[in-house]
Design a binder for these strands. Structure first.
Lengths: 330, 330
DNA sequence: TTGAAAGCGCTACCAC
DNA sequence: GTGGTAGCGCTTTCAA
């Protein structure tokens, strides 16, 4: 491995000069600059990032934490994050939390030890204690899955998304409802609120997979979907709203397996509008989040924070509009 | 940020002792060890990775390079790689090459500058020059997508996979064939070889999306699939073999759009057997790679290389058996 | 405009 | 067992 010292010796200048040339800081004569660059090219030199990080306290590294890499939503957003990060000279460390808070803490701790310049985090459900910690520790953080007071975030309003689905189901004349996912999710709050506001009785709204929903998720929800659908009374048309697309797919398949007609007997709407929605038959209705935009904005927000030396300014919240994309399952 | 110096001062020992305790190296009295650990816990101390990397020349970081994060195959394998890496105390830097060789070079260069302990790389098509470079540079590397002389690798034999599909098509009495993907792909070689061995005329075998197949990939192949299927003579039943699953899906949808019956008029087989195969209707036939195993083995292989101080030993090639999973599209 | 030199936080060697 | 100390490769004052 070559070092700046080598370049300096070969180019006949001091190491400081090499550093100045490479960092693009002003105050180097064109002649010396050219000489340095010549050797940099000749040796295909690249400065050691660890040394740079140690000395400059800036790693050009961002950490991304997601609860489930297999969920196409997170895979897609990771792809966009990586693209924009790379474009700005940043590398991305990816960590999968599997929706486990303990693991999330460990990850964040280790990312800090790596001196990452910032963290982008997607949560699968609201986790106040963790976010509270994140706020205390002064790591620059942007959440791309939900809102939280005192932390930068970007995303759609899940509550509004839930409300959209409720309105849609009501307009279709549906009278029984189920939500697949954690009851504390904002999506469910918006869903339920709207239904109750429209005069629906509470006993017509059910939550499935509440506590252990994450475990249920891991096999894509098929099993618990079958369990639920086979136990439910189907004399009333059922409207099922799912916390995400893979899980919604599980419901559709469960319905098919039980010979229930979709959407005539069971209407299904997912969340995220990932590309799988179009890749399945029947095509899946879903609440759309502008994934690419969210990924881009999250990176931009974080880099802006990194640039401003003082972390004085108030947090930024960017809320985009969710949209219900109606397809064949609802 | 606290440092080892702080811990040392508080615990009343030298910095060397703190270092020894934290690295678990022998030769520290239990009493002092306990005292150090007490302060480590109290301050929630975590050593600075950059400093460690710089001093020990070991980053506990591995780089993963994939051509397309949106392809479920790579998303899945990344998930497994991350899991096993984390289990062994490694973090993962993920980079998306978009199938571009220039970008791949840049990525590798920057990963080396980051002092990664090793690189796992998945390629979308054979790229001899790049791999040759990789061999020259002594970065520990494992390929998880294909075989290459002189570099460790793990995966299924794509050639065998292609042969399996050819045999299957022949057994179904199919007489016209197409391969969607780059002609230089081993999958195609095995496919074509087997067909020709069985007496099929060369003009009955076509390659679609050869040169610009990657671009085609990016919108999941639907457009060029429609283009191809609408131009082809359909009086003979067609067997289409695709380089991966998303692309195969494009063909199925194109066929549906053109009112061609799948699999009666057009049989389709994908590659990788990602979970989308089961999530679509008709369910997609595909050549299966044991994704989880490949991810695990790739990490294990790399860590073994890292452990052996000398990089003397010959390369390892692990070839797993591909399997044709027949479903509704063939 | 340039170079010398003092760190950044840690590891590892050497001496006690 | 333990502590002192010389780097690891870079950035960034400070003087010249």
């Amino acid at each position: 491995m070559k070092t700046m010292k080598d370049i300096a010796r070969l180019a006949g200048v001091s190491q400081s000069t090499v550093s100045r040339v490479l960092s693009g800081s002003a105050g180097v004569s064109p002649a010396r600059k050219a000489k340095v660059m010549e050797w940099v090219r000749k040796l295909d030199f690249e400065p050691n990032f660890s040394a740079q990080t140690l000395a400059a306290k800036r790693s050009l590294l961002i950490g991304v934490v997601v609860p489930d890499l297999m969920n196409p939503y997170f895979a897609e957003i990771l792809a966009h994050i990586e693209k924009h990060a790379a474009r700005n000279g940043y590398n991305v460390i990816i960590s999968n939390s599997a929706g486990d808070q303990k693991r999330e803490r460990e990850i964040i701790k280790s990312l800090k030890a790596r001196q990452v310049d910032g963290i982008l985090i997607g949560l699968s459900s609201p986790e106040a204690p963790l976010l509270e910690e994140l706020k205390e520790q002064k790591v620059r953080t942007v959440i791309f899955s939900q809102e939280y007071d005192g932390i930068d975030c970007v995303g759609v309003s899940h509550k509004k998304g839930g409300a959209l689905v409720a309105k849609h189901f009501l307009a279709e004349g549906i009278e029984r409802f189920a939500f697949f996912g954690p009851a504390k999710d904002d999506k469910y709050l918006g869903f339920r609120e709207t239904l109750i506001g429209a005069g629906i009785q509470k006993d017509k709204i059910e939550v499935i997979g509440n506590e252990d929903w994450w475990l249920t998720m891991l096999d894509r929800g098929l099993k618990s979907a079958i369990e639920y659908l086979s136990s439910v009374n189907t004399d009333l048309k059922l409207g099922v709203f799912s916390v995400n697309d893979p899980f919604a797919l599980g419901i559709v398949h469960a319905a098919q397996e039980l010979n229930l007609k979709v959407p005539e007997e069971v209407a299904v709407v997912g969340f995220d509008d990932t590309f799988v929605c179009l890749n399945v038959r029947p095509t899946l209705s879903s609440v759309s989040q502008p994934i690419e935009e969210i990924g881009r904005l999250a990176v931009e927000m974080l880099l802006k924070r990194i640039d401003e030396s003082e972390s004085n300014s108030k947090e930024n919240h960017i809320l985009l509009e969710p949209k219900l994309i109606r397809r064949e399952t609802s």
